Simulated assay, not measured.
Amino acid sequence: MILARTLGIHTDVAVAWQCLSAGGWTNYAAEISRRTSTQEDIR
């Protein structure tokens, strides 16, 4: 994991931070699947 190497932390710590801040990849995937075409056009 690039972030972990850059910060000099263990990958488990980086993953734990990611889960706490964003809720994990499953939540991200669910959010993407709920987007409408209008929302995608704005970004």
Rank of each mutant, 00 (worst) to 15 (best):
I2T: 15
I9G: 00
A29N: 07
T11L: 01
I9M: 09
D41W: 10
D12P: 02
A16C: 09
T36Q: 12
M1G: 14
T26H: 13
E40S: 04
T38I: 08
T38R: 12
I2A: 15
R34E: 14
I32L: 09
A4R: 07
D41V: 02
A30F: 04
A29L: 03
D12A: 02
D41S: 13
G23I: 05
N27P: 09
V15Y: 02
I42D: 11
A14F: 03
S21A: 07
V13E: 04
S21F: 05
R43F: 13
M1N: 12
R35A: 07
S33L: 05
R34S: 08
R35K: 02
T26K: 13
S37W: 03
V13Q: 06
Q39R: 07
Q18M: 00
T11P: 08
G8W: 02
L3T: 13
S37A: 15
L7A: 15
D41E: 13
W17R: 10
C19K: 08
Y28F: 10
C19S: 01
R43P: 12
L3D: 14
Q39V: 04
R43H: 10
A4E: 11
R5A: 15
S33C: 05
T38M: 04
D12V: 00
A22S: 14
A29T: 09
G8D: 02
A22F: 07
I2R: 11
D12R: 00
S21W: 01
R5M: 09
G8E: 07
Q18R: 02
T11I: 15
I2C: 00
T6P: 01
A4M: 08
A14I: 02
G23L: 06
G8R: 08
M1L: 05
D41P: 00
L20C: 04
R43A: 13
V15H: 03
I9P: 00
D41C: 10
I9D: 02
A22N: 01
G8T: 13
C19H: 04
E31A: 08
A16I: 01
T36E: 11
A29E: 15
R34G: 07
V13K: 09
S21H: 01
L3G: 08
T6G: 08
T36L: 10
I32A: 14
L3K: 15
E40W: 08
T36R: 01
I9Q: 02
R5H: 03
R43Q: 12
